[in-house]
Nucleic acid binder design. Sequence first.
DNA 1: TCCTAGTGGTTCAAGTTTTAAACAATACCT
DNA 2: AGGTATTGTTTAAAACTTGAACCACTAGGA
Lengths: 167, 167
Amino acid sequence: MTTRWLSPAEQRAWRAYIGAASLLEDTIDRQLQAETGMPHLYYSILAMLSEAPDRRLRMTDLAEILKITRSRLTYGVTRLANDGLVRREGCHSDKRTQIAVLTDEGMAVLERAAPGHAEQVMTAVFDRLTPEQVGQLEEICGAITRGIQGENPGACGEDLPWRRRSS
Amino acid sequence: MTTRWLSPAEQRAWRAYIGAASLLEDTIDRQLQAETGMPHLYYSILAMLSEAPDRRLRMTDLAEILKITRSRLTYGVTRLANDGLVRREGCHSDKRTQIAVLTDEGMAVLERAAPGHAEQVMTAVFDRLTPEQVGQLEEICGAITRGIQGENPGACGEDLPWRRRSS
DNA sequence: TCCTAGTGGTTCAAGTTTTAAACAATACCT
DNA sequence: AGGTATTGTTTAAAACTTGAACCACTAGGA
């Protein structure tokens, strides 16, 4: 197959995307860092836990949801555990598994940070988009996710894969 | 002002975006790392230089384009210079400034990597999008960029800020 | 039962990157 | 001249990531 290049329109879209994504990640990260002392990834760990039933999740599942290696997750959870925002628990049915549980303090931190985070997302993103564009964005990002993951579910958010191998 | 929360639709869009962005960054980074031995940021440095007039750019301008600190850029350029992909040059008119110049080897590396990168972007993103969506994506990302930068130009790509303080 | 393969998680060492603060060398302005 | 702002680099510390090695346990036969 000869090289497939981006069309001019695609080129423009890609550049716009790269610029926006980099700026956005930077902005969000900075704000979260200032407000909670932790980077976006760690905030996401807390957020995912907060939405899981009983605020708990297997390490492996959590890693899969966040699309990061288990090693990386262990590192992050260790830090969060040191800060008292997360607690580890064993599992009766399978003694290998560890379960990360969001502590009350972790939940408190999350709730304290949420308004600022939401405000940030609003001003950075949604204040500038029409309702149609919001829909389009979801659609487009969904397509990209499916494209990369090759049709397998369990992305970050939405149809969360609770009830997978859990007992 | 009471807290402004995301509407359900915005919530969905935001989640979809976060997931896609993280996956995409990961994919691109991994592919570039495998193919060129350098992360996306460094590839971007080369790419920006390659499009600049005479393939050269002031450190400060480059940093601004890429939205990174000068310190971070210095680090990156040093690495690229050690690999022979970039060369530093002084400036006659202002002896403080350093100019990063893309070497022929750097250009060669870039050109060698470009096809694989393009292919990756195509399969990961554009193969899944309709022409309308491509336009929408550009539009949306442009709006986000403007939202964050508060109407100031000079984003990453497109209307590049050559001719700023140079000379 | 015992053996083997596979899973779940952590640890370890190494390397990379990031940050922030401090510097040195100019340039600019009055 | 003298004070101030810019440019870029350096520095040391910290944070993060990776990959391989590793332990403990589970599962699935023979």
